[in-house]
Amino acid sequence: MSLLDGILGNAGEMDLEKLESELEEIIIEGEKIEGGYKVLRDYFVFTNKRLILVDKQGVTGKKVEYHSVPYKNIRHFSIESAGTFDRDAELKLWVAGITGPLEKKFGKKSSDILKIQRSLAKYILN
């Protein structure tokens, strides 16, 4: 992910080994990380059990909020692929108890939005 993508709010795919190391105290037994995407300091992670939103706070980023969304609470989701003039792909999630969707943007080259859609469909629709 380039700095410009980060500034524009575009997510870039993260290394699975790094995610496993950073989330070793958060992940439960039997839970497997499927993929993760970073926007500047914050990132979100898809596991086989839930979506984890990680919000690094403050100047140093040492204060961290972990927000877990079980897949059963995702009521609706949509993806929008990148186009010729609109170069960003977009993911929207509607979660029970939250007004309006959670939205994440992906740079055209930084990730495979269809892979994310397949992962969500696998866990939400089964």
Rank of each mutant, 00 (worst) to 15 (best):
S81T: 14
L53E: 11
R75C: 10
L120Y: 10
L93F: 06
V95I: 14
D88V: 12
E22Y: 01
K18E: 10
K72R: 14
E25N: 12
T60D: 10
I52D: 01
G58T: 04
K62R: 09
I98F: 11
L51P: 02
L93A: 07
L53Q: 09
Q117E: 15
I116N: 09
R87P: 08
K92S: 13
K32V: 14
D55I: 08
F85E: 12
S119D: 12
D42P: 03
K38D: 00
G30K: 09
N73D: 15
D86T: 14
I28T: 13
A96M: 10
F46A: 00
E24Y: 07
S119Y: 11
G30H: 08
V54T: 03
K18A: 06
L3S: 10
S110G: 11
E31A: 05
F85V: 13
Y37A: 03
I74W: 14
K18G: 00
L3G: 08
A82V: 09
G61W: 04
S21E: 08
Y71N: 10
H76Y: 13
E24F: 08
N48M: 05
I7S: 05
E34P: 00
F46D: 01
Y43Q: 03
I98C: 06
R87V: 14
G35C: 03
G100T: 10
A121M: 11
P70S: 10
V54P: 03
E13H: 06
E24V: 10
A121E: 15
Y123I: 04
H67T: 15
I52H: 02
I124S: 07
G6V: 00
S111F: 13
G107F: 08
K62T: 07
I116R: 09
A11S: 12
S68V: 12
F44W: 10
K104V: 05
R50T: 00
D112C: 12
I28D: 12
S68E: 15
L114Q: 15
Y37V: 05
L3Y: 09
E65P: 00
I98D: 12
K122A: 11
S78R: 12
S78D: 10
H76E: 14
E29S: 13
G30R: 09
T60R: 10
G61L: 04
I98E: 15
F85Q: 12
E17F: 04
G58L: 05
S21W: 00
R50S: 02
G9K: 01
S111L: 12
L93M: 09
Y123P: 06
K115F: 13
G83K: 14
G97I: 09
A82Y: 10
G35N: 06
S81A: 13
G58Y: 06
P70I: 06
K63F: 13
D15T: 05
K49L: 06
Y43C: 03
F44T: 01
G61N: 05
R41Q: 04
V45N: 01
